[in-house]
Amino acid sequence: MIIIEGQRCFLRVLMEADVTPFTNMVARNMRYWSVYEPLHPPEYYTEKVQLKKIQESIQQMRLNREYSFGIFDIQTKEMVGHISLYSIKRMPFSSAFVGYSMDESHTGRGIVTEALSLVVKFAFNDLCLHRLEAYVSPKNIASVRVLEKAKFNREGLLRSLLYINGKWEDHYLYSYLEDDY
């Protein structure tokens, strides 16, 4: 069990027991999140599918390829978001991608910025990675601010990177290097 504590939130690896609150959060934010990521078919928003995703992330963690955390409010212990390190590659890359989603009702409180900082610390101190990367839509101003507050650097624009809801969308590539940390 991995738990990483901050001042506003704590991160805990998702477990099978989290399936109900996680599924509820995913379903509750379906429209909010679909602005910057694909809208999924209805079955995606069921406990059956989300349980399978949690089980897969646990298996990937055992292989040291992914760490999928729930973001929990430090005071209420409520799950308010999700953040993961994924596509972990060892040498010669020693890198991973970071992705996160915040419950709409908890945005604007600095929680996801702190969660990202906690994941960066974990990636560099515990996993001994060299490079973290994140994609973000140029339209997602809030997420761009989160990355920049967490000291990620914009490296460029990746044209037509992701197919989202019927359209190819550009994304910025951000990185954070071990030397920057």
Rank of each mutant, 00 (worst) to 15 (best):
A134I: 14
N125P: 00
K151H: 15
L132I: 01
S143L: 05
E133L: 11
L118S: 05
S160R: 12
I141A: 07
R131A: 07
H130T: 11
F122Y: 14
V144N: 12
L173M: 14
L118A: 03
K149E: 01
T113R: 03
F124S: 01
V146K: 05
V112R: 06
V120H: 03
L162V: 01
L162N: 11
V119E: 00
D170S: 05
S117I: 01
V112T: 12
A142F: 02
L118T: 01
D126R: 07
W168T: 02
A142P: 14
T113Q: 06
R131P: 12
D170N: 07
T113F: 13
E169H: 10
I141W: 06
L161C: 09
S143C: 10
D126S: 15
L162Y: 09
Y176Q: 11
L161F: 13
K151R: 15
Y176A: 07
L116E: 03
Y176N: 14
E178K: 10
V136A: 13
K149Q: 10
N140E: 03
K139N: 10
F124A: 03
R154A: 02
L132N: 03
K151N: 09
S160N: 14
F152W: 01
K149P: 06
T113S: 14
E133W: 04
Y176S: 08
G166W: 14
V146R: 05
L158M: 15
V112K: 07
L177P: 03
R131Q: 15
K121E: 03
E169S: 05
S143H: 02
F152R: 08
P138S: 07
E114H: 04
V112P: 09
Y172R: 07
V144Q: 06
S143D: 12
P138F: 07
A142K: 13
L147F: 08
T113I: 05
Y163N: 11
K151S: 15
R131I: 08
H130Q: 15
N140T: 01
E148V: 04
N125E: 14
F124K: 02
V144I: 13
Y135E: 13
E178W: 10
L147K: 04
G156F: 04
L127W: 09
L157A: 06
T113E: 01
Y174R: 02
R131L: 13
L173S: 14
P138I: 04
L129G: 00
R131W: 09
L118N: 06
A115K: 00
K167M: 12
N165I: 03
E155P: 02
L116V: 14
G166P: 15
K121Y: 12
L118Y: 00
R154I: 03
L127I: 09
I164F: 11
K151W: 07
C128V: 05
E178F: 09
A150C: 08
I164W: 03
E148F: 09
G156R: 02
L158T: 04
L157I: 11
K151G: 02
V136E: 00
K139A: 11
R145M: 03
L129R: 03
V144A: 05
R159E: 02
Y163D: 10
N153W: 04
V144G: 06
V136N: 02
S175I: 12
V112H: 10
N153G: 10
A115Q: 01
V146P: 04
Y176C: 15
